[in-house]
Design a protein around this nucleic acid. Sequence first.
DNA 1: CATGAATGAGTCTTCATTCAT
DNA 2: GATGAATGAAGACTCATTCAT
Lengths: 215, 215, 215, 215
Amino acid sequence: MGATTTAALKPRKKPVQARSAATLAAIHEAGIQVLLAGGYARFTTIRVAERAGVSVGSLYQYYPNKGALLAALLGEHLDVVVSSVEGACQAGTGRGLETMVDGLITAFLDAKLRRPEVSLALHAPMAEADGAALVRAAGMRAAAAIGDMLAGCRDAHIPAPHAAAGILATALSAVMQAALEAGPERLDVGWLRMHLRSLAIGYLHRLTQADPTKG
Amino acid sequence: MGATTTAALKPRKKPVQARSAATLAAIHEAGIQVLLAGGYARFTTIRVAERAGVSVGSLYQYYPNKGALLAALLGEHLDVVVSSVEGACQAGTGRGLETMVDGLITAFLDAKLRRPEVSLALHAPMAEADGAALVRAAGMRAAAAIGDMLAGCRDAHIPAPHAAAGILATALSAVMQAALEAGPERLDVGWLRMHLRSLAIGYLHRLTQADPTKG
Amino acid sequence: MGATTTAALKPRKKPVQARSAATLAAIHEAGIQVLLAGGYARFTTIRVAERAGVSVGSLYQYYPNKGALLAALLGEHLDVVVSSVEGACQAGTGRGLETMVDGLITAFLDAKLRRPEVSLALHAPMAEADGAALVRAAGMRAAAAIGDMLAGCRDAHIPAPHAAAGILATALSAVMQAALEAGPERLDVGWLRMHLRSLAIGYLHRLTQADPTKG
Amino acid sequence: MGATTTAALKPRKKPVQARSAATLAAIHEAGIQVLLAGGYARFTTIRVAERAGVSVGSLYQYYPNKGALLAALLGEHLDVVVSSVEGACQAGTGRGLETMVDGLITAFLDAKLRRPEVSLALHAPMAEADGAALVRAAGMRAAAAIGDMLAGCRDAHIPAPHAAAGILATALSAVMQAALEAGPERLDVGWLRMHLRSLAIGYLHRLTQADPTKG
DNA sequence: CATGAATGAGTCTTCATTCAT
DNA sequence: GATGAATGAAGACTCATTCAT
């Protein structure tokens, strides 16, 4: 299903005209809104089109099917976050552990908190079939970047840095998501940052000490 | 909506005859199978009934609606895991930090790995509306138990133990789930245990050092 | 459909034992209650059986199908009313017009108001296929009795008394039913009786004057 | 439940394209046909759509649910009849009793006999829950109009004219309906008119004489 | 005989997708 | 290109009826 699915989920055409770009953006935004308002279960093409102020037909001009739209929504969000993380990792290369982690977490928090509702809206789709694949891919990209950074840590030797990076990425994402789910307004960013930091540094620090024969 | 939903999702009747118990069990198992085979999107009452070898009508004799079946599946699994964790927490009360964490992780791993496919099957449903609520509730139960245990740690003072417990539970679950998703066969339990341990101990240890003004 | 239907709607067996009679009565009463509580749409065999405190199986011991149960409910009620009317008509034979009408209306009111809820409960079923046939038959019985009575009126010559009787029966029933539907508590019996009387006497009286060439 | 029901039963959208109008009309007509052919019990959305030569989906584009379709069918018919009656009542205002009654009955007969099958088809639905409410409302509109007319009768003082109007409307409708049910072909309109006239005039006339203390 | 679990045909309703205008 | 009416497969759920226990 891999190749076929992937192909089928590609957007139909690139917006070459200004109008197209605007329409595409409207659909995009509408998708998030619909997801937010009614959950994954009420995410229908008609509702998205209505909210975007276009007809279903137009929606299908841009996306060959519902899955492609969902994939686009997910893909963009994941890309923003992962790109941000990748940037931080490049910037952090060669630094000390705490500096690395600080940069990583700052980038991650910034990316996620720019539009917290988007993360909330996409939570359910991320768990389903095609979504999970995209998430997995994004996770691997992030883990690769983080792993590369960790491998070149100046003041600490982290064994199996790419494996550790995968675990780290997973843990940080989950805690972040859980914090968002408690309600954007109840969110204490300083508190959250502190705990993510403790989690990351504590974990990595511990890895440098315990000598895992494996990993 | 809380009460209403909860009420609407309650199973319809307890099996009083032997025949019923078998049917109920078959439906239960079939639910997992269907989820595993086709994902949440293909989880339909008809398919579940077919796989269970009963008619749709029978399914509806035990569950008032699809959501109730899903809730039952989810609820049972979550209960097994959380109960296991609660047990470990009670047993770990008054011990040292590492002992506590070891007990906790062992219980968690045992519960999750007894039937790894179940965790996989239930991943998507856990993200959707009603599922999320159940997960949240289970998470809180677990966090409460872990927090209580941490509060009475013999050899370390963990500030705001219940908050830490919540984060810990989230992180451990996510890493566990990700590990399962990589494929049950590719799973190196020893390796996983080590990393969960490092994550937990590293995090908690760090919390005792850093002096968080907040939390 | 006539003969077949009729045969199929006959109760399955006569209650020869005391227990049977009690069960039958319970089912009967439960039928009315269910109709009253949920309307015709919620009138299901299971609900009736539950309310009667018996199993569906037992219900089917007494009635071969749902229609038969409904027919029995309807039939009994119609029979009570029509019998009462027939009695009044026999008693009124040979009297004057007003005496006749008074007797008729008293009998009708008495029969209908003994258990007003029953009339309400049965309103919808009376309009449906099989019900309508029973109602028609009952109406004809009543019209026959009333017509016979009218034919022998001492102080007035009513042309085509059986035709008039049919119309009278229809009109009185409808007004009665409408009055019940307004709510049993809001019902002013004296007022209702007066109007039924005016309707009947006024109509019949008028018939004696106008010379209908036809009828 | 009043408001809710009413809202839920509203048609979904007005046809803006020519194609839509045709579809809507076809559905409407098909609804009557299905009711006539199979009775209320066989009135299903699928059958209506089939008979209309459209898909179920199309039906649901115009009516949010089955009840709404039924309500529309019923509503239109009732509105035609009541409007006709209202017109006659306005025209009859200030006239003598017999003139009034003649106008009323003519209007009523005309409206009902324009499409006798429609009345037959709608009989059963009129007795069920939502139908009954519509009928009640229509009855009140008619009674109000008739009552207003009667109140201004030139040659007769009718006590409590609106109460009398309600009873009159009920009686006339019932007799009319019963006459239709005997079969449209067996219907002698002259005969029916005469009896409706006798019923109405006889009743009203009698009311003016007898002095009812109440009503 | 009574019970109530099981059946499955039949309903209502939704929604991704197409295509005539 | 845009529109939105039409499609129809598919899903959730009900309920009359049967029959093993």
